[in-house]
Amino acid sequence: MSLHVIQALVLRYLFLYTRSPMRLIELIFWPVVELVIWGYLTLFIQENTTGDFPRIIVFLLGAMILWDVIFRAQQGVAISFLEDVWTRNLLNVFVAPVRTIEYLAATFCVGFLRILVTITVLGLVAGLMYSFNIFTLGWALLPFFMNLMVSGWALGMISTALILRWGQAAESLAWAVPFFIQPFIAVFYPVSAIKPEWVQTISWALPPTHVFEGMREVLKTGVFAWDKFFWAAGLNLIFLTAAGMVFFYMLTLTRRRGLLTKFATQ
């Protein structure tokens, strides 16, 4: 794997973002709108409930911010690929000395950079408007963040593999795929709230579920749940490997069927 090539591809995305302010707005505008809505809802609930609940309910804001980590990481992979399709640049990249793993690594870096931009803005808005300090999660934030980012990368590869399989007609999957799993990963509610109960087994099989449950535990008890961290990390390893295999398989299939050029020049 060549760092040179990864650096060059990341540079291309940086040029793209700095030359297109609309892309930066997309990175900031929607997450901030969502945060503001969830923020007001949290304030409303806090004012109208008693006991421990008002303190715990701030997890809604934490959940919203951490959900964005998955979404931005996934978008980093899937949208970066689509950018090449939209600009008819995909062939130039695929006939250049770029290994698939280098291409993916560059999109992972883009995902990471997208997260940094969004999280910084969301953290500031949450702090200023709702006095919610994302760092109340303490150092637990880092392993949560890493795990969610890896989950996002895996989802990004799956989205891209599906687009490769069904062509540009399926490009809306680049936005939809994370939402397929959102109801089951207990972002805004505990796993115990998911019914019927057998669906909870599916929830526990998904790595982000352990992160969101772990986050609630930190906010509630102040204790870092190591078991949930290890479950998330282990499952992420399996998911990332499986997603990578699906992506490579679809890419080979697309080449074998001769669809890559049609797809890239349509």
Binding site: Q7, L11, F15, L16, R19, S20, E83, R88, N89, N92
Partner: peptide, 23 residues
């Protein structure tokens, strides 16, 4: 190829620099 393009919103030197680094 006449049927491929370089990213439209990048400047000419930016596109060429990226590929120069790849190669």
């Amino acid at each position: 190829s006449a049927y491929t393009a370089l990213p439209a919103n990048l400047l000419v030197w930016q596109n060429l620099l990226v590929f120069a680094k790849i190669y």
